[in-house]
Amino acid sequence: MTSLRSNTTQTSGIDRIEAAKNGVESAWAEIYSELAGPVVGYLRSRGAHDPEDLSSEVFYQVARDIRRFHGDESKFRSWVFVIAHRRLIDERRSRGRRPDTVDEPVEDLDAPVGDVEDEVMQHVSTQQVWEVFRTLTVDQQHVLALRIVADLTLEETATVMGKRVGAVKALQHRALASVKTMIEEGRVSL
């Protein structure tokens, strides 16, 4: 299977996008299986209320509008995350207008049962990471979410954020410096 990442030749990537435009299911299966995880992760890291549901909406909009998209796979990835970002903003506005519902904790019945102590430690560590993440500025969070969680390149991230590559570089440097300071000050132990 070809990949949407850099090991894809541009021609095969464009072919796949063309196939997706024509409604070829295998093309959509590849696109969805490769991008759904990063999209859900991105939406979650950006505070989406229901990342899985919102991700479905993102992909339906991608499918609906793909005929109007022109570009290679890299631009396609950026485009998908632009849509994700906009749906996230829509969700926040919508949430502001409607009464919020109480989230039930979702248990993954298919998840393998592991060592409880390990799981707790991992959970605590993950919690700390996200606490640190939340102390960053909005733009710094956005950059790290796109670079690390969504696995976008520097250029793709700049496209999604509508910033110059240099500005994105500066943001990610400052973000990592802040995190490093917090680690060194012992505010988080990883």
Partner: peptide, 23 residues
């Protein structure tokens, strides 16, 4: 920890069918 990400999506075939139909 940040890049651990979400699990691979489920129901890929179902979604692919729906997305292809929408496209």
């Amino acid at each position: 920890a940040l890049s651990a990400g979400d699990r691979p999506p489920r129901d890929v075939e179902q979604m692919a069918t729906s997305l292809a139909a929408v496209a």
